[in-house]
Design a protein around this nucleic acid. Structure first.
Lengths: 147, 147
DNA sequence: TTTCGTGCAAACCCTTTGCATTTGC
DNA sequence: GCAAATGCAAAGGGTTTGCACGAAA
């Protein structure tokens, strides 16, 4: 896999630089995965990333996607949300923390602000001594249109 | 599979009667599964139920456990919680609705009252027009001892 | 050149399903 | 006797892993 410098339109300098600075190699696969995440507006699945990356480089394997996501997670560049049933979706950390409302009827996803949970967090800490780690939460229900 | 009448110590009359009244057969498997759920104090996994049932009737298959849980769910006798990563745990409905705080350090589970979320539910409805279905929720974090 | 990253295929874990057989009623 | 329930084995879906090859520094 050749000449990846200058190939992409550098939307995702931060993640790239972070990888570079930590001593990780800037492979084309990693760059394309980072690009896909950045383009996604969040909530992208590993398979969707894979499909997008394959459109450019057909031989990229999905295990590389998972391994790269693992790396980005460990560097705090990406957060992972369990959307139920063990399906994960990914989101660039620099796009801000938020949570998801998922409509069981139409499958639409509504982003909600992290602050929506601050009251709940306080209650859990006060009443149960429990420090909640609400990274990305998915809440299921019915959206406005589907009720 | 023989003589199941009078074999168990009838802790779980309700579920049994409910099954019976709805016209479902009272097989020994179903009774043992219901017993396992009842004994579990909640939060039992399909595999744990299976192990417990097999101790009495070695030939019971895990698919029967899943099918019975499916049935009990559809009758509203059991609720299912996704404890992350697509692993489900089950809980008898008559033991009351509640949610879970799971410590990432020591894996302990704290039950919390459903009412803890009523404020959040109201906010989601008011601000996003979203009717949340909070059946059983699992929230990860750190418990009092592990901080 | 030496280590790191990748592709491939197989394994994994839990859950679900198809089908022939058994069993409750 | 007959529909309903079970056991078995195989499939399923998304994720992970072992290993040999290939490429980055």
């Amino acid at each position: 896999m050749y000449n990846y410098r200058g190939m992409a339109d550098h939307k995702s300098e931060e993640a790239r630089n972070a990888l570079w600075e930590m001593g990780y190699r800037l492979t084309p696969q990693r760059q394309l995965i980072v690009d896909a995440l950045q383009d996604s507006e969040g909530h992208i699945s590993a398979e969707e990333i894979h499909a997008q990356v394959k459109a450019r480089y057909p031989h990229v394997n999905i295990s590389t996607v998972y391994r790269t996501l693992e790396l980005l997670k460990s560097l705090g560049l990406v957060t992972e949300t369990d959307m139920g049933g063990g399906r994960f979706r990914y989101h660039p950390a620099d796009k801000g923390r938020h949570h998801h409302l998922i409509c069981e009827q139409c499958n639409s996803v509504i982003d909600i602000e992290e602050s929506t949970f601050s009251q709940l967090k306080r209650t859990l800490l006060k009443d149960y001594g429990f420090k909640a780690h609400l990274n990305h939460i998915a809440i299921f229900g019915r959206c406005e249109r589907c009720r």
